[in-house]
Structure formats: C-alpha cells, structure tokens
C-alpha cells in the first residue's frame, strides 16, 4: 500500500510529455447557437466550427473542454485550459483580468423577451439574465431588478414560470426560442448594443497564443470563410465582416 502510494506520487512528479502543442479550448456548452452539447454529447455550434477551423489554420492540435460559465475565467487563469471560446463579449472589465483576440463576431444586439400577454414595461420589473454577462450588468445599470441565473436556460424557465417578467440575452440566442414558443414569448423594446463584439479569451501571460489566433482570425476574415460560418449559424440577418 505504502509502495503503491509512493509510486503514484512519484509518477505524478516525473511523468513526461509526448508533445506540448495541444491547445485546450474552454467553452460553456449551454448557449446555442454559439456553443452547446449536441445529442451525441459532443460540443457543437458556431464556436466549435470556428475553433476547429482556426486551430487547423494555425497548425494547432485542439482539445475541447466544457466548463461552467461562472468559473470560466478563474479556470482559464489557473491554467485548466488555454482559451475561452464561449460567446464572450470583449469588455473593459474582463480585459483587466484576461486578454482578448480581435473580435470574430460583430457586436451582437441584445434584446428583451417577455411572455405574450399585456404590454409590460420590462425595464421596470424583474429582469433575468445569466450571471456575469454584459446583459446582467446592463440590466443592473438600467434600474430594473436583476435576477441572475447560472445558465442561460434557467433564465428562460424563470420567465415561463412567472418568476421574472423579462429575460435579457443575446438576440441570436433568444430568436429561436421566441420563434418556437408558439406565441408564448415575444421580443419587447429596442435592441441594445452592448459589448465590443465577441473574441477569444486568452491568459495575459500567453501573448504568443493570442498572436497565433489573431493571425488565424485575420485569414478567415480575409477569405470570407468567417462570414460563411456566421451565416450558417446565425442566418442572413447577422452582421458580417
């Protein structure tokens, strides 16, 4: 037993790498169409396609990692994975803790949805948003009462159960939900443009990796393949580069 324990500990310290070129891509897997876990249990969505293509162009070997949204930045800086590619908008506050590549999506409109009946003024009532998102801070600043939830899906359930009067999130996440609600849910108010577009989050100490992905995003913007990908996942109305 002692020997076994000792060799296990020893093994942990002397264990040697095969190759070190693998980049681990952290994503939430709960925000379709950006990223989600598909029916086979694999990470799928716009960012899966994009990330695989970027890694291909940069000649990197990439491995996908699912991580909950609320700990996605702490686990990046502590080194559990090397990038965040999870529909994360570039903001000044986040930029103080991590670095961002250039944006691979234009600033996406955020929108409010509410249940069908009446003409509620969502800006005054209780509005649900996912924890630690730009929408959550926007709602808090707007003077409405903010109800935070760990996953985007829970905000929608809260609205359907009548716990909140509205939900604020990226419009491209909400649009299919509204479309398939048979009139149960609808958009209200104006679209709001917040955040500086969506980029990949990278550790501040990892500037080489940031340059690599910046170059790969450049090449995808230049040959139009990024626009093709955006149209595939977000439809014709999405803003392109």
């Amino acid at each position: 037993m002692k020997k076994l324990l000792f060799s296990a500990i020893l093994l942990a310290f002397i264990y040697v790498p095969a190759n070190a070129d693998t980049v681990r891509m952290g994503t939430e897997g709960a925000y379709p169409p950006y990223n989600f876990i598909n029916d086979n249990g694999e990470i799928d969505g716009f960012e899966r396609d994009l990330g695989d293509e970027l890694c291909d162009r940069a000649g990197l070997d990439c491995e996908w990692v699912q991580n909950d949204w609320d700990s996605i930045i702490p686990n990046l800086v502590s080194g559990n994975y090397d990038t965040i590619i999870a529909g994360m908008s570039i903001t000044a506050e986040r930029d103080e803790v991590i670095d961002f590549t250039q944006n691979y999506l234009q600033p996406d409109p955020s929108a409010y949805i509410t249940t069908g009946e009446g003409n509620k003024a969502a800006y005054i009532g209780v509005v649900a948003a996912q924890t630690a998102t730009i929408q959550a801070s926007h709602v808090a600043e707007s003077g409405a009462i903010l109800a935070e939830f760990a996953t985007p899906d829970e905000t929608i359930s809260a609205l359907r159960n009548g716990e909140v009067e509205a939900v604020m999130a990226d419009k491209s996440f909400l649009a299919p939900i509204v479309a398939e609600s048979n009139g149960g849910l609808k958009f209200i108010g104006q679209d709001v443009y917040i955040g500086g577009g969506v980029g990949m989050g990278i550790r501040e100490s990892d500037s080489d990796l940031k340059d690599t992905f910046d170059a790969a995003i450049d090449s995808m913007k230049a040959d139009g393949s990024l626009n093709t990908l955006i149209e595939k996942w977000f439809g014709d109305e999405a803003s392109l580069f």
Binding site: Y15, P17, A18, A20, T22, E63, G79, R203, E204, S205
Partner: peptide
C-alpha cells in the same frame, strides 16, 4: 498577475493528454 503559469512540461495532466 492573476495568472498561474507553469511551463508546459510541468502541467498535470499535460495539455497534450486526451480529455
């Protein structure tokens, strides 16, 4: 800063290891 940075060979498990 807020980063915990060890060299690639020191990571456990290694980045190159399968999930």
């Amino acid at each position: 800063g807020s980063d915990f940075v060890v060299c690639g060979a020191a990571k456990l498990p290694l980045n190159s290891d399968p999930q």
